[in-house]
Design a protein around this nucleic acid. Structure first.
Lengths: 195, 195
DNA sequence: GTACATCTGTAGCGCTCGTTACAGAACCTA
DNA sequence: TAGGTTCTGTAACGAGCGCTACAGATGTAC
């Protein structure tokens, strides 16, 4: 049999995107149900029927954010050299941070420092670790290829660049312009292992 | 005449320190009056009589935080070379971030990304800028002394190291250990202008 | 002692929060 | 058409929020 009962009148994916935007800007506790429902264009009972409750909606939005980011990063990992990958990653991330159509920061960075709830913090931390793992693996490959020397651990290098990317998010949310962020990235690349 | 009326039964400075700790951990909106009064050991009317309201209390706590930090930084600026200063600054900041007696982050970094209120954000941004200005001035002096080459702008170098320090705060609040943070600092110093 | 000033805790204000009970509307099956 | 199922908006629940009116306690000034 097909779906019974009155059909849903809104697109759950589009509604989730709207919810993601609200959480991104105001955090979990800072986002109220009334603001969420208004942005999503639905009423509270529709939200609860479709997404469970506020916390489950947040987890769904967080998964969506991480999924989109992973797609972008995965494509960048295919650059021929790790160095070229890192340069392009900086460019992409900076453009993302200064894009006026979304909050000028990484959602994971912003919320991982802001939210005190343990379950939420662990979910945020896990998604952040995913990105770092991608860097570690790419740097490991670069070392195997002979692009990186043996005296620099891939995990340390990934930790360093993730730290700079996190810092860029902080500065972008404080209003830093594209040029400033690019100058930081240029100086950060001087830490690249050389001869 | 001396102070008239019933004397205050608590130490305003100690109470402010307790309030600072609560704001530091939970942010402005996340800190409730009930939690603040409990930590400060006073009742709501005492808080309002002594500090005005929640927002004014926050500004006072923020000023206190920035004042303490400025003292530490000022002493470090007297290192003979800018490079030595930066190395010691990294050490001090990392020890500060991993200190278990306070939240594992920079309050200004944590709250500048979290709070959406405009007045609060501007106050936080101003205090963050103070620290960066100290670095700019120290690097300018280093350039005049011949320690730094002319092809690297002090403002860019300061922006880079502030970005790393901000990133270290993000990682420390995510649970990074002392060793990880030190490795990041070591790699970050490779961006130091050299021959 | 009396009057005044200031601090103290209790108890409550109006408001918003996350969540849900309820009734009506819109679809399916038969 | 009749009955069952699920979505819809309205309206309200208890709880916690920032804040304060109030009365009592405790100091100084005269």
């Amino acid at each position: 049999m097909a779906t019974m009962g009155r059909p849903r009148e809104f697109d759950t994916e589009k509604a989730l995107d709207k919810a993601l935007d609200v959480f991104w800007r105001h955090g979990y506790e800072g986002a109220s149900i009334s603001e969420l429902t208004q942005a999503m264009g639905i009423s509270p009972p529709s939200l609860y029927a479709a997404f469970g409750n506020k916390e489950k909606l947040f987890h769904s939005a967080l998964d969506r954010y991480a999924e989109v980011r992973k797609q972008v990063w995965t494509e960048l990992m295919n650059e021929p050299t790790a160095r070229k990958m890192m340069e392009r990653l900086f460019d992409r991330v900076i453009e993302f941070y200064v894009d006026e159509s979304n909050p000028n920061c990484c959602m994971l960075v912003k919320l991982s420092t802001a939210e005190s709830d343990k379950v939420l913090a662990e979910h945020l931390c896990a998604k952040r670790a995913e990105a770092e793992t991608m860097l570690v693996e790419r740097f490991s490959k670069a070392r195997a290829d002979g692009e990186l020397p043996d005296d620099v651990a891939p995990v340390d290098l990934a930790g360093y660049f993730m730290t700079v990317l996190d810092g860029l998010s902080v500065r972008a949310s404080a209003g830093a312009k594209r040029d400033e962020l690019h100058k930081v990235a240029t100086l950060a690349m001087r830490g690249w292992p050389g001869k």
